[in-house]
Every structure is written in structure tokens, then in C-alpha cells.
């Protein structure tokens, strides 16, 4: 854990530095300027944090709702045209987002989705969904649907089957897929800027605007805020990333 946090030490130092010139090893003067700006009511940082969280969590939830049935179909069944479907699912990972973003923007403007929260969530689903579907597919490839038949034969209703049989079995995949979805959506810059039109302001947008202007203290403070939720989610789900639950390493062949 300590090793994980060590790289952030320079960021922490930068965020409270006032004067820090080469070749000093630590800042020669200190200041809370960056942090007081971050927590100031009108600095847009807290609203951006809220927007980022709402968007990332909504994207995660939706992508899991899409990923479970899609992953089940891909992992459990063999059907005609499966390879084509797999390539189509992977397409957003292969095709650079910029190539299609302009076209998507036009369509979104026409449907009134540009500059809205819903539009940003929708466009974030494009890069996120392939990962979730693939992870769910690999979980379902190892999954034995006969447990479900057994539960039904013992009188379980469909809801009970999902709750007591399917859900616990695929939970590691949901957690890992969700983590991927959250982190990808959380750090998305280009699609947010284009579809959100600068009116849906997320943390990466603010971060880039300060990083570009060379204000190191503010950039460092914002970076730390930016990393925070991602680390919390990583810690909460880390046990599923290790081999014990076989979510990643133990997935079956697609």
C-alpha cells in the first residue's frame, strides 16, 4: 500500500509549495493557496467532483446492465456470426475515439443530447462497454448454467435464481468490470469536452486547463483530488483483482 502511495508524495509537496525552484529538494516556501482555491465555493472544483462522480457511477451501472446479458450470450453460447459480434463489441477499443467523435457530436446535437449530462454518460458508454462485456464474457465462459436448472427444479422463481445462484457466481466479474468502467469514465477528457461542450465540467477538464497553464501547485492539488476516488474504488475492489477470486486470471477461453 505504501509503495502505491509513494509516487504521490511529489504531488503532495507541489500542492503546498509556494516557492520551489531548481535545485531545492523540498519547497523553500509553503502555502495553502492551491488547497484553499480548490475548496473555495466558486472555484468549480467541488461541482466538477460531483459531476465526475455522477457520470462515472451512472456509466458504471449502465455498462454492467448491458454487460451481464451481453457477456452471458458471448460466454455461454455459440451462435452464427459470433466473431462478427465480438469484433463489433471490440470496435470502440480499436477505432480511435477522435475519428468518430465529431460524427457523434453532430448526431447528439440533433437529438438535443449535446451539452447534457445524459449525453456525456451515453458517450462514455462507448469506450467503457467493450471492457465490461469482455470481462463478463470471460466469467460466463467458466460458469455452469446447470446450477440455475437445479435451483429451478427445487422451486426457485427467476428472481431467486438470479439472486442466489447467478449473482454470487458472477460478482467478481461485476466488481472488476465495474472498476474498469469507473476508471475509464473517470479519466475521460476528449469525449466529455466535445459532447459536454464545456458545460458539463468534470475534473479532468479543470485539471488539463491548469496543467496547461503551468500552475504546478494547483495542478498537483487537483491531481490528488482526481486520484482519490479512483484509489478508494481500487482499494474496495482490490481483493477481487488478486488471483483468489479468479476474476481476471482464471477466466475461461472466449
Amino acid at each position: 500500500m505504501g509503495g502505491l502511495l509513494l509516487p504521490f508524495l511529489p504531488l503532495l509537496l507541489w500542492s503546498v509549495s509556494h516557492r520551489w525552484y531548481f535545485p531545492a529538494i523540498i519547497p523553500t516556501e509553503w502555502s495553502w493557496r492551491a488547497w484553499s482555491y480548490v475548496f473555495k465555493a466558486n472555484s468549480q472544483v467541488l461541482p466538477a467532483l460531483g459531476y465526475s462522480l455522477v457520470i462515472a457511477l451512472a456509466t458504471t451501472l449502465l455498462s454492467i446492465l448491458i454487460g451481464i446479458p451481453a457477456g452471458r450470450a458471448m460466454g455461454l453460447y455459440r451462435f452464427r456470426g459470433q466473431t462478427v459480434v465480438r469484433v463489433l463489441i471490440l470496435a470502440p477499443v480499436i477505432v480511435p475515439p477522435l475519428a468518430v467523435a465529431m460524427g457523434i457530436h453532430m448526431v447528439f446535437i440533433r437529438y438535443g443530447l449535446a451539452n447534457t449530462l445524459a449525453g456525456v454518460v451515453l458517450v462514455h458508454l462507448i469506450p467503457v462497454t467493450p471492457y465490461v462485456v469482455l470481462i463478463m464474457a470471460s466469467i460466463f465462459a467458466n460458469y455452469n448454467p446447470e446450477y440455475e436448472a437445479q435451483a429451478r427444479s427445487l422451486g426457485a422463481r427467476p428472481g431467486q435464481v438470479f439472486r442466489y445462484i447467478t449473482f454470487p457466481a458472477i460478482l467478481p466479474g461485476i466488481v472488476v468490470g465495474g472498476l474498469f468502467a469507473f476508471i475509464i469514465s473517470w479519466s475521460e477528457y476528449l469525449l466529455t469536452l466535445l459532447i459536454g461542450g464545456g458545460q458539463v465540467i468534470t475534473l479532468p477538464l479543470l485539471l488539463f486547463s491548469f496543467a496547461n497553464s503551468g500552475d504546478n501547485a494547483l495542478t498537483a492539488a487537483l491531481s490528488l483530488i482526481f486520484i482519490g476516488p479512483a484509489i478508494i474504488f481500487l482499494v474496495l475492489t482490490s481483493r477481487y483483482l488478486t488471483g483468489r477470486h479468479a476474476a481476471v486470471g482464471g477466466g475461461g477461453r472466449l
Binding site: 493557496r33 482555491y37 473555495k40 466558486n42 472555484s43 468549480q44 479543470l206 486547463s209 491548469f210 496547461n212 497553464s213 503551468g214 500552475d215 494547483l218
Partner: peptide
């Protein structure tokens, strides 16, 4: 352009 905190402060304040 939003790259300077004192300008942003003045605008939003």
C-alpha cells in the same frame, strides 16, 4: 481561457 486561478476567482466571484 481558464488557466489562471486569480482570473477565474475574479470571474466567478
Amino acid at each position: 481561457w481558464g488557466g489562471q486561478d486569480n482570473i477565474n476567482n475574479w470571474i466567478n466571484g
